[in-house]
Computed example of a mutant assay.
Amino acid sequence: MSTRTFRIMVRGVFHELSAEQRAELLAHAAEHDVLRAAFTPEGHLSYDLAARSAFTFRFLDSGEEEEDILLATERAEEAARAWLVERGYGYKNLRSQAEDRSQAPLGKRQRRAAAQQQR
């Protein structure tokens, strides 16, 4: 059985942040810039609080069965919640979107590489 790779995005909105919390998030904004966003096992948070109060966590997980994506999504949502709660950040509208990379269509370079391997 082959391992499947899952990419999960957990999105939400910061809610009722105190002035101190907002200042803390703004102080760390460069670390969480969307241009630095990556899918990682521990989850990467990105936001642009100066523009809007939305945030996105990006998680990388894996499993062997197609159904494992559901468990991976639950783990990602719980990890995002835990991070927010641990820091006392209010949030709302938490939702997730998951993708099984084994089901994703191949890009142009990937198709070309696959064709060359078959020759």
Rank of each mutant, 00 (worst) to 15 (best):
Y89W: 15
L60W: 01
G88F: 08
E78R: 05
E31P: 06
A115Q: 10
Q110D: 15
F57L: 15
H15P: 01
E86G: 13
F6D: 12
Q97P: 01
E67C: 07
S46L: 06
Q117N: 07
D61H: 12
V85I: 13
L17I: 14
W83R: 04
M1S: 10
S102C: 04
V13A: 07
A79F: 08
R109N: 10
A98W: 00
Y47I: 02
R87G: 05
H15S: 10
E78K: 08
L84Y: 00
F6N: 05
L25G: 03
H28Y: 09
G63V: 09
A30F: 12
N93D: 11
A76F: 03
V10G: 00
D33Q: 12
V34I: 14
L94H: 01
V85S: 01
L60A: 14
H15L: 03
G88T: 10
F59N: 12
V13L: 05
Y91E: 00
T73N: 04
A54M: 11
D61E: 14
L17H: 10
H15E: 10
A23K: 02
G88P: 06
A27M: 07
A30W: 12
A79M: 08
M1V: 13
A72S: 05
K108N: 04
A113S: 14
A114T: 13
S2R: 13
D48S: 07
R7K: 03
L60V: 12
R112P: 00
T3I: 07
T40S: 07
Y47R: 07
A98D: 04
E31R: 11
L35M: 15
H32E: 02
Q117M: 13
A72K: 01
A37K: 13
R112C: 06
S2Q: 13
E64L: 12
H44L: 04
A50W: 14
R7N: 06
E74S: 08
Y47P: 03
P105F: 04
I69M: 11
R22Q: 09
R87P: 02
S96D: 07
T5N: 10
E42W: 05
D100R: 08
Q116E: 10
E31Q: 11
R109Y: 02
E31A: 05
K108A: 11
R52L: 04
D68N: 11
